[in-house]
Design a protein around this nucleic acid. Sequence first.
DNA 1: CTGAAAGCGCTAACAC
DNA 2: GTGTTAGCGCTTTCAG
Lengths: 342, 342
Amino acid sequence: MAKRKSVSIKDVARESQASLTTVSLVLNKRDWRISPATRERVLEAVQRLGYRPSRMAQGLQAQRSGFLAILVPQLRHAFADAYFGELISAIHDQAREAGYKIILEVADESYLAASQHVEIFDRHVIDGMLCMGVTNRDAYLRDFEKGDRPVLLVNNYLPGLALNSVRCDYIEAGRLAGHFLREKGHRHVGLIHGAQEVQTTHDLRRGFEGAIGLNAPLAADLLEDGLYTEEGGAEAAIRLVRRHPNLTALFAGNDKMAIGAIAGLKSIGLRVPEDISVVGCDDMHSAAFCDPPLTTVRTPIYELGRRACERLLDLVFNRAESIQEIHPVSLTVRKSVAAPRA
Amino acid sequence: MAKRKSVSIKDVARESQASLTTVSLVLNKRDWRISPATRERVLEAVQRLGYRPSRMAQGLQAQRSGFLAILVPQLRHAFADAYFGELISAIHDQAREAGYKIILEVADESYLAASQHVEIFDRHVIDGMLCMGVTNRDAYLRDFEKGDRPVLLVNNYLPGLALNSVRCDYIEAGRLAGHFLREKGHRHVGLIHGAQEVQTTHDLRRGFEGAIGLNAPLAADLLEDGLYTEEGGAEAAIRLVRRHPNLTALFAGNDKMAIGAIAGLKSIGLRVPEDISVVGCDDMHSAAFCDPPLTTVRTPIYELGRRACERLLDLVFNRAESIQEIHPVSLTVRKSVAAPRA
DNA sequence: CTGAAAGCGCTAACAC
DNA sequence: GTGTTAGCGCTTTCAG
């Protein structure tokens, strides 16, 4: 591991018979007053020595690190998840175009106890932060309410808190699913929702309730928490149909639960969609690939991730003060919904 | 977005009537010669002002950034993948314990064309790099062969190149799968492999061939490329059974292809495992959740990721010169294998 | 057109 | 015990 002594701007200056200033000016295209000859010499030296400016030194000088953090909640294995993965991928792509790098932070208990989410700003490790998978219980988000740090929630929001947010319209998502099922003739439907502490869970339910032709909220015994997981979705589905054998359709708050629900229903001898229909939400890659292919509400996660990153940088560079964006959703029809059995 | 002027070590020095040195010494626990009274004053000032040392400035001084990169290949949406996700999660967890942060880099064409994979070192953005999902065609890896930069391949290796590597034993993985199927009585088996340019693909095949009781390599028409995807696995499975209706079992090089294969087989009216058995490789989370639950070779991905990160830091801190580690695998038996039909 | 010098925030020899 | 000072590598006034 031979320590390669890195070449600095000084070396370039010496080699090109120019001063530090001159080299810096040339490199930063502020060279409109530098003579072509000098510029050539500098550029040649840069080339020859393989000089690359240190980003740490530049950062120190500019008081900008060039990093953005993605904060994800503690999950079994946080990044092994298609939903988060797609967001992360999108954010990365967008950040790169802006010359920014992405760092990953997991907001687990010890992390928050040590106030790492704030320290990462104060220590100038990052210029901005995107928070994914937040819930109403994430008290640490209050630390960002003053708006003195560029922070933005991705695809969620917290009713009480004034936090920047870019998200999909989950009321409309629920409405689309409910409307589609009603049109197909379903009158007895159940809902497998995600965590109650996630605001979009409530939005989704409200939209759904309105669209299936209910004037009142869905009865509590037509709701089950599917924990956002396949396992949870499977168990929730089984509990629902055991309790209400006349159910003809289920709507799940995300595709993972929907896919789990299908597996669960099959495991107790029900056919999808012949005996019971299932609608998901997200339109993840795997939604097209389960059996039967899933009819689901498409929330444009990738596009949303890019947009969130774009807006965060607006915050970082003071091109925006505060952000609230709600993006439209649509319905992807596949094979998991049929008319109710006679 | 009020620009919060961050408090520096100077402010602390002034407030605590001490010098920069003293403050620095106290903060870095080199304070064995500082008087308790002074230390108290300093600590109090630090507390009161909410001082946090700038990591950029520290990095500049120490010539260490405190960042590690994870380099992943270009994928449709790179991070939306359970295999990579689990590795990333593991690496993150390990890095955190060492006070390191993880940055994500995607090795797409434009990235490599610009030699970003090298520049990120030269610009002191990172102290080390972990490469995931590499193939024999990744020519850029040669740039790391000299060993002057701390780089380590995760769960793969390249036969021709002298690169650090921490990986699972894929020869043994193939052997375990083959042996299990043979024990169950299978004599006509097919293999759905991953990309030929991935070295472990060959290891897996060699191990498999040996164990199913072949003296020669598997006939070419018993092999299909499943592209590491569900779709690819499905198509490969269908092609194999169409071509050889007497096949009683399939081995897939990863769980995604195995799950796809099961879906594909079902779609043409075959039952798993009654008509045909399927074995996967990885033991991902979803392997327990398909229908039927997948019998698969467990490659301890999470543990491997942590270990890879640990060893990379050994490289970074010159505690190791070069690294080659091969980790054991095991078999997880579920429901996707039965004895061949009579 | 070009260069000297200050300063970003921190650490560590080397005084005193 | 504590402070002075010289960098780490870069950008940017401000003078020539």
